[in-house]
Amino acid sequence: MSAAPAAPRPASADADGLELLLVPPRSRPAWRLVPARVVAMCVVELQKLRHDRTELYTRAIQPALWLLIFGETFTRINVIPTGGIPYRDYLAPGIIAQSTMFIAIFYGIHIIWERDSGVLTKLLVTPTPRAALVAGKAFAAGVKAIIQAVVVVLIAALLGVSLSPNPARLLGVLAAVLLGSAFFSCLSMTIAGIVRTRDRLMGIGQAITMPLFFASNALYPTASMPGWLQAISSINPLTYEVNALRGLLLDLPARLPLDFAVLLVAAALGITAASALLGRLSR
């Protein structure tokens, strides 16, 4: 069945159907390692999602409820100063950012599961620098988040939110979601490296998601917050992600270069911190 490729045939007679296993693969140049590992991790994430889609469906419920109930109600009450756009529209980018952050912030649980099950150990003995492994995991979390973002965008469109149909802007949306999730999943992996058990990570994850959500402009503009909350919001990467998403999806004036710069720096810092702590999980 397997066609023999043009590799040098080994001398051994026992090698029938094993010939490829006798030749080690050539190593890639160092600069190609990170992208190659990112692809490998993303492929695994997609394969898992293909085998088990329940997560995809259950994760669509919460954002749908936010948009449907919270969004519709507050659109009627009309108390949040949105600068003239319907609150439902204003809220949609916030919910995209929030629901993808939730996915990313619990991603460290996968790392702990992989460590407990020995899968991580084996990956650490492959020619994969720690930072490449963490970047791979961060973008794998991003892949999940992007799928979630697409689902929420579709729900929002069904609910009548007027989203920009410009493909370049939609690509920008995916980039912002990817970077935001890379940061939050690295935050999660960093915490995983510190606490090292699933239960503690769950607890911390539960404790920080709501504060991150409320101390951002996902639900209401920063301007209507008290001063101390504004200060927190201005160092919360979620705020910049929401800003970017709002600007891109609703065609509003935005500070995209600033937003993307903050998201990039946050993701890079996250990868650095998580890679530094990853070794603690292999002890």
Partner: peptide, 18 residues
């Protein structure tokens, strides 16, 4: 594991099968 050891795509499926 074929991917993380940089097995080139053209021989990956065969190598995994072997």
């Amino acid at each position: 594991f074929a991917r993380v050891f940089d097995v080139p795509r053209r021989e990956r499926a065969d190598r995994v099968a072997q």
